[in-house]
Design a binder for these strands. Structure first.
Lengths: 240, 240
DNA sequence: AGCACGCTTCGGCAGACAGCGAAACGTTCT
DNA sequence: AGAACGTTTCGCTGTCTGCCGAAGCGTGCT
């Protein structure tokens, strides 16, 4: 027999459910690692305060630390943590803007951000929709209509992406279907899963994308703007 | 321009992050509706206390109410709330057993439960795995190996399920792929999405499954035990 | 060795909040 | 109308916890 039983949802949720801690987690939501002092600045609290918070997040196994000299780099413990955060963002209310700085940050996040390892935000949904236009992905609308649509990669799409330089060998074979997230800001789908991660990685390799000051924020380069229009037919007016 | 900005993850998480409130949400996780007093018993607090909690959960838009005479039936506001809860359960630590009663409840939940509209728990993963054995579903192992596998419904499987009485017309057409959840207890996949919901509904219609005292708990009937073995080849020793 | 730096620990304070019982409110049943 | 019932509101108490500054500890620079 097995000692496992119900899990302590309340404890994790409480760990996430503090404004400072949530800011920390969101700042790390792009999959990057940051030292304690940067996280303190991010959350707008003192170093001693953030230290307590980080200890709590470690205890809840939401974060891991890497020791590097006198620095300590924190990152999300697993992909599942990032997924849980995005899922929570989906059911959360919009947050009123606090400062001018926060406003530009927020706008940048809405424009293009990483959802741990794949592209999200307006850019993410624009790419997803362009991939359908180009018959790279085929949508199969949900029967029940409640956000449970399904996408598959077409043979043509497979060829297209291979030509683009995505290493398709390392992805699920045959009639692949495709994972996606419901974007919390756009309420539309963006590409996720292994394919989303691989495509995003390729775009970074081509320098179509660059990391912003914080890893979660992504900037589209001029090359990226041209490339997306030329290769996938993403309309330029959706790249603002 | 759009006033939407970052969302308030902290607020939702805080709403979930109280033991009593989490118990309420989990009790409603099967998609059912319960009156305030039942939820108070469920959480083990007084009626006045639960009333405050329910008000908070309503304010956070995690629940909705239906007024029915002097009763008020609460249920989860959307499927997304249920999804968020399961995602949190996935990253939460196991909870130590408190009472004998809680223990039998927990065991029942591990055996078979509803994940809002589809089957989960040991029974859920057993069915999922049997469906693969029977070539109803084909698994396409993840390239990156981090839980991003993909399943598709085979033509044979489509015929099989149609014969079983699942209304396949109302589901995504053509080369459908299939949504799944990672079961928080088993750490294996169970069938979700429209197909999972439809199959589960059919099993209820056939009286293979019956609701327990609380809707989230599901009981397998004798007919269900036989049917699952005969129709899908689910081994009897996995139905304990 | 000595200093600067990043981070954590400690002590203390103030606000938030879960808990209960009593009372109020509205609905249903007799 | 009156009693029973489900639910919410109110007042109160105790506890928890987020916050800071100061002090402590280990690491790296010079």
């Amino acid at each position: 027999m097995d000692a496992r039983t119900e899990t302590d949802v309340a404890q994790v949720a409480a760990a996430i459910g503090d404004p400072s801690r949530a800011k920390v987690l969101l700042a790390l939501g792009g999959g990057g690692a940051l030292p304690a002092s940067a996280l303190a600045a991010e959350a707008g609290v003192s170093n001693s305060t953030i230290s307590g918070h980080l200890a709590k997040l470690l205890d809840a196994r939401l974060l891991t630390v890497e020791l590097d000299g006198r620095h300590r780099y924190y990152r999300l413990a697993t992909k599942d943590v990032a997924r849980a955060l995005e899922q929570l963002a989906l059911i959360a209310r919009p947050l009123p803007v606090r400062s001018l700085n926060a406003d530009t940050r927020a706008k940048a996040l809405l424009r293009a951000r990483l959802c741990y390892d794949h592209l999200a935000g307006r850019l993410g949904v624009a790419v997803m929709s362009a991939l359908q236009e180009q018959d790279v992905l085929a949508a199969e609308p949900a029967g029940t209509g409640d956000g449970d649509a399904v996408y598959v990669l077409t043979p043509h799409g497979r060829a297209e992406l291979t030509a683009f330089g995505v290493d398709m060998e390392r992805l699920p074979r045959r009639r692949s279907s495709v994972r996606y997230c419901v974007d919390w800001a756009e309420r539309r789908h963006h590409l996720a899963g292994p394919l989303g991660a691989a495509l995003t990685a390729r775009m970074f390799a081509l320098e179509w994308l660059r990391h912003g000051k914080y890893r979660r924020v992504v900037h589209l380069t001029a090359a990226g703007r041209e490339g997306l229009a030329a290769t996938f037919g993403v309309p330029a007016d959706q790249l603002g």
